[in-house]
Design a protein around this nucleic acid. Sequence first.
DNA 1: TTGTAGGCGTTATCAT
DNA 2: ATGATAACGCCTACAA
Lengths: 335, 335
Amino acid sequence: MNKPATIKDIAKALQISTSTVSRALRNASDVSIETRNAVQALSEQLNYRPNKLALSLQQKQTHTIGVIVPNLDYVMSNMVKGIDEVALEAGYTVMVCQSNESFGRETINAKRLADSLVDGFIISVSSETKVYDHFKKLNAPMVFFDRLAKGIHAPGVRLDNFEGGFIATEHLIEQGYKNIAILAGPQNLSISNHRLDGYLAALKKYKRKVEEDNIIYCDFNQHYAFLATEELLSKKKRPDAIFTISDRLAIGAMLAVKEKGLSMPDDIGLVGFNNDPVTSLVAPSISSVDQPAFDIGKAAAKLFIEQLHNDGDMRDVEVVLKPKLIVRESSLRRS
Amino acid sequence: MNKPATIKDIAKALQISTSTVSRALRNASDVSIETRNAVQALSEQLNYRPNKLALSLQQKQTHTIGVIVPNLDYVMSNMVKGIDEVALEAGYTVMVCQSNESFGRETINAKRLADSLVDGFIISVSSETKVYDHFKKLNAPMVFFDRLAKGIHAPGVRLDNFEGGFIATEHLIEQGYKNIAILAGPQNLSISNHRLDGYLAALKKYKRKVEEDNIIYCDFNQHYAFLATEELLSKKKRPDAIFTISDRLAIGAMLAVKEKGLSMPDDIGLVGFNNDPVTSLVAPSISSVDQPAFDIGKAAAKLFIEQLHNDGDMRDVEVVLKPKLIVRESSLRRS
DNA sequence: TTGTAGGCGTTATCAT
DNA sequence: ATGATAACGCCTACAA
């Protein structure tokens, strides 16, 4: 109802100028104690709150960070929590937008936020995104996290996905699995490729042959994983273990294995990725590569704020955090 | 690098006044075709984008909605998606803040957003929140969803939680369970109480005695649910079915049942709430009350926008959507 | 059809 | 120690 009080109101009431009020409010240097007290008392009484819009307009910064994420699943929402934490601490507000894995949505979100609403961006790219011009156009500070934008010269925080793929595969090898397949993700995503590279490196280290048709690219979709696994299991030379680069894929794979009447971990071993809580709830529980999601978010926000305040060129900075394998029933042979 | 173009730049370049540019840009009434074309051409060339800050300052509205949610779990993130959808359509941007179920965070978030950043709020209250003064102080349009604020006279969208509690309990009764316990949520949350009321009503309808110690209030926390269930199962008069008002609680309960060596659904029946995907993945799969999360979000956003544009008093509007019971193995007796 | 002036709320600069 | 003025980018009377 009653409009928020402004500096003008206070000035008028106290018969002083707005500039004095402004100074008094900010405890600035040159203000008499009396006026300061008077101003602060009245401002409190009127419940004065500075208008951020006006401030931002004047200072050309909004103290707001635009965060664009492809979804808000378990891992992502933890990362966002990490961003939130650091941003809040540093006096920044966070605007979270979901692209729903859609390139179009991502573009719209970015444009909107760019219209003077945010000081910069913290972004994880959608799985549909193959070109990055819409980000370049933003012409604003940005940090990528989790899913980086290959073509863009900007700092990033990510998991060591290669390592993740490696330890998962190595573990399966050590458990005695001979013919290990992989459900990789979309080919344009670097996380997908890195995990695949880790898989390949592990095979190589242990001198295993790479079977081309043991490598299946599929979207982050449980149903596709189900179908892909069905196909894998009906090959003549059936794999005896599967590494999936996400837990959702792992669930799909597991359902296919069950339907086929095969037992896990005996007939088929399985390792997923993300350490989603669901992995410990299904039977058998699923081994998974854990990533420090919260810390990745925190690191991204820190990097962003650092970039904003530092003048140095940070475009080459890439923070890489380590994954950890959580071994559960799905890949643990009694042997 | 190069600062964004402003109306002034265009005006100067074209040797006309800013007001003319402003008009031309908006295809306003009185502008000669030539100038309009010239302006629009140049604005495109300069990649002109109106400064939303300036606009908001002037028009006293930001076209931004502040969304405050306790968390971003499966259900909530679907609700937010619904809000997003409608808001985007209507030309609004959404700022999502998580309170992490903390009263303090909720208050901070609300205050920050209120500082001229948003036109209003769409809120789901944290489980810690027992008083609502911090919302009243906002003095801005707001709509509550999912978890409503009892003390506040504002429109809301919610599930028919009573109905949800009722159908879950009735189903258990129909399956022949005799002694049905409930893991209710925090006592201050209306969703918790409504589901409990539905449970009580079902018992009453079928003339079952209500055992006071079959009613356990516990936080939305899997571990508490585990402990609570352990306690329930060690009573002399052990319950033979449990209705939990969230799936996370159901998981905790299930783990306790398994540890106790009891079988499900034979010894103990179980029904959860939310229809989280996890319920269909565990063994046995868990029956659960499904809520139309996406639609609830959409309805909330619609209500908000309506409220903003309508002058009518909508404070008494309460949209209530219906739940649906999804029956799975955990409560289906072969009998 | 176009231009001028004032204002949205704030701060920075320059006087006084 | 305080005030006046201009500016941030835009829009809307009102005037020409």
